[in-house]
């Protein structure tokens, strides 16, 4: 499977994603500079973490108008699998490829730590190898990850099953103590209505090898392979 990792000025999770997909998963993987305008030959797009354009104005706001984003939007609207990680999630909400928005963390702190998230749905390209209800151990590193959607939109995405991951405790329970960034309904990741675009604040690409502290993230990335019929 040919992965494309979008690189904006200020991306810093791009090399982690390139390593995880290219070295750990052993897939042909290409960095795609934001000035490019084509995704020809790409089967799966990853919008990585970082601080694209310095997060100026709003996280993801300026990146969303980068030349490559036209191709990403066409790819997504044609049903191609797109994964937005952390800042990439913010870019995809700004591009309106994903619902809602990500606000400053409730405690105003930048949080860099390992968290647990509960898989809510297995019917997306990035959770097909997972089971609804299971708990993943993943790192987060963000200052603006507090998920927000207007009440009617929140109700709609919940009803549609578009909430894919929620912050939880090690047993999968949703408790106030696990909602460290103030996300509505503990939301850590969502998908679009068509379910081919997924965004999440945790970093699966930083949890693909035991030496890094955990490899649960590898299963998220590997899920994309099974959808495309590719085997590792």
């Amino acid at each position: 499977m040919n992965f494309g990792v979008i690189v904006f000025p200020g991306s810093n999770g791009d090399h982690d994603a390139l390593h995880a997909l290219g070295e750990v998963l052993g897939q042909p993987t290409r960095a795609i500079w934001h000035r490019e305008t084509s995704l020809d030959g790409i089967d799966c797009v990853v919008v990585p973490g970082g601080f694209a354009y310095g997060d100026y104005l709003r996280a993801g706001a300026i990146a969303r108008f980068s030349p490559i984003m036209g191709a990403v939007e066409r790819f997504a609207r044609a049903g191609g699998p797109v994964l937005g990680i952390c800042n990439g999630f913010q870019v995809l909400t700004e591009a309106q490829l994903l619902p809602g928005s990500l606000l400053r963390n409730a405690e105003l702190e930048f949080r860099s730590q390992w968290v647990r998230v509960r898989v809510e749905r297995a019917d997306t390209p990035f959770t097909s190898g997972l089971t609804a209800g299971e708990v993943l151990h993943l790192p987060i590193a963000h200052g603006e990850g507090s998920y927000f959607a207007a009440p009617e939109e929140l109700a709609r995405i919940e009803a549609n099953g578009q909430v894919i991951f929620r912050y939880c405790d090690p047993t999968g329970e949703i408790t106030p103590a696990t909602n460290f960034n103030g996300s509505l309904n503990h939301i850590a990741g969502v998908c679009n209505e068509r379910r081919n675009v997924v965004g999440l604040m945790p970093h699966p690409e930083r949890a693909t090898e035991a030496i890094l502290g955990g490899d649960d993230g590898r299963r998220i990335l590997e899920s994309a392979l099974s959808v495309a019929g590719v085997r590792v």
């Binding site: 606000l103 105003l108 103030g182």
Partner: peptide, 12 residues
Amino acid sequence: LKTVVNDPQGLA
């Protein structure tokens, strides 16, 4: 910010 959006910065 819209009134329905929590503003932790403003609160601080």
